[in-house]
Amino acid sequence: MEKVSIVFSSPDEADIEAVRQVDFTLTRGKTLALVGESGCGKSVTARTILRLLDRNARIGHGRILFQAEGGQPVDIVSLSSDSQAMRAIRGNRISMIFQEPMSSLSPVHTIGDQIDEMIMIHEGIDRKAVRARTVDLLEQVGIPGARQRADAYPFQLSGGLRQRAMIAMALACKPDLLIADEPTTALDVTTQAQILDLLRALQDEYGMAMLFITHDLGVVAEIADEVAVMYLGDVVEQGNVFDVFRAPQHPYTQALMSSIPRMVRRSERKRLTPIEGNVPSPRNRPQGCAFTSRCPHAFAPCAGEYPERTATGAAHWARCHLLTHDEAPSVTGLKQQRKTVENAPANQGERA
Rank of each mutant, 00 (worst) to 15 (best):
A228H: 04
D197L: 03
Q203I: 06
M102P: 09
P296V: 07
A300G: 07
A152C: 10
G142Q: 08
T340M: 11
I223L: 06
P296E: 04
M1C: 11
R294K: 00
C173A: 05
G41T: 05
A344V: 10
P154F: 04
T253F: 13
S158I: 15
V4T: 01
I167W: 08
R20Y: 00
M263K: 14
Q99T: 08
D12G: 13
Q72N: 09
Q336S: 12
M1V: 02
V227N: 03
D243R: 03
A180F: 09
T134H: 09
G91I: 02
H122L: 14
A346V: 15
A303G: 05
Q337D: 13
G160L: 03
M208R: 02
R149C: 02
T25R: 07
R338N: 01
M96N: 05
A152R: 06
M210D: 02
D116C: 15
R309H: 06
I125K: 12
D136W: 02
D216S: 07
M118I: 15
P286D: 00
T253Y: 12
C295M: 07
M86W: 06
Q348Y: 14
P175W: 05
M169G: 07
I76V: 11
A193H: 05
M263I: 13
D12T: 13
A132T: 08
E2S: 15
T48H: 01
G218W: 11
D176S: 08
Q114F: 11
R93W: 08
V235L: 00
V220A: 03
P183D: 02
I94C: 06
R51Q: 13
G71M: 14
H109P: 12
R285K: 11
L256C: 07
T27Y: 08
A165D: 05
T31E: 04
G207S: 03
R319N: 12
D75L: 09
H297E: 14
A201H: 12
V22E: 00
R200P: 01
V22W: 00
W317G: 03
M120W: 14
D82V: 04
I59W: 13
F212M: 01
R147V: 09
T48A: 06
G29V: 06
R162W: 11
R51Y: 06
I16G: 02
D243S: 13
P175I: 00
V135D: 10
K174M: 13
E123V: 05
L171C: 14
A247R: 09
E237A: 15
P296H: 12
M118E: 09
R87K: 14
M257L: 12
Y252T: 02
H122C: 14
P286A: 04
A46G: 13
Q192S: 14
E226H: 07
L53S: 07
D23S: 08
G333Y: 07
C320T: 00
E100H: 05
F299E: 04
A129Y: 15
Q72W: 09
Q287R: 15
V229E: 02
A172R: 02
H297R: 12
Y231L: 01
T31W: 07
A352M: 04
P107W: 14
M208H: 09
I94N: 03
V135A: 03
R51V: 10
A33H: 08
E17S: 11
V135W: 00
T253M: 02
I195N: 01
M102K: 10
